[in-house]
Design a protein around this nucleic acid. Structure first.
Lengths: 129, 129
DNA sequence: TCGATATATGAATATATATTCATATGTTAA
DNA sequence: TTAACATATGAATATATATTCATATATCGA
């Protein structure tokens, strides 16, 4: 958790050199920013994308709906690990499940995923990894 | 690190019920996926977005170039913490620095950031946080 | 040069989290 | 109902990482 904002721990960074502008700039930008809850949720979402196993699962699901054991084989990871990660993806509404007999079939639950994925790829292609 | 793929540790998930299709599906999708290095880099990139402090820094920089002590005040975090996070943002080519006298001025280094940010916001608005 | 300011960074610590193991739950077929 | 299969999940462990503290580096003015 990185939400432990503790003013008393802050170093005494009062004002830097551009004194007159300084406070105006700080206030202006503070007011323009989304509230902390929103930014926290946003970070939580990207955290879900920030794991190779989950990225690989999402990427596999771009093609088609898959059951857990198929995902497990495709990305060469144990069933348990895959299930745990699918739970996280479910909790973020990135995938949905459909039960059919003994199997659970997972599919993407959001049209933003592919776009985010693609923008990320463009960034690393341009800037290098 | 989550790259320790160890086949010998995998459970004996050989085939699920749809036996005939199974191997074809697995192969087809494995072939369609970007290589592991690319997906690893992609996860690394999103990991950078997956922290509230860094998201707040990026969000502050949407408005204008800022020096470290301004960022520190805007997001109400210590100078050291901010510097550490800026280093990570720099390493991912998400921000760039310009030195001017005693201050370092940071700005966004990528036009994808805002788009990714926006898509993420759309997701949490639709799906709830 | 010296002191003040701004930033950067190594080390330590606390916290978060991914994987594994063991096992529970749920489903189907015999 | 029992056995086999598919998936889910709690607990433990190992690893990663965010923040803080102390301190180093860099720039400027007196």
């Amino acid at each position: 958790m990185n939400e432990n904002i503790n003013n008393s721990d802050l170093h005494s960074v009062e004002n830097c050199e551009r004194v007159s502008e300084h406070n105006n700039i700080v206030n202006e930008i503070q007011n323009s920013m989304p509230n902390l809850d929103t930014l926290f949720s946003l970070a939580e979402l990207f955290k879900v994308f920030g794991d190779t196993t989950r990225i690989r699962i999402l990427c596999a699901l771009f093609k088609k709906e898959l059951c857990v054991c198929e995902i497990s084989e495709i990305i060469q990871m144990g069933q348990s690990a895959v299930s745990h990660q699918l739970r996280i993806l479910r909790a973020s509404s990135l995938v949905r499940v459909r039960r059919d007999g003994k199997s659970s079939y997972y599919s993407l639950d959001d049209e933003h995923i592919y776009k985010i994925f693609k923008l990320g790829l463009e960034h690393i292609l341009e800037k290098g990894q």
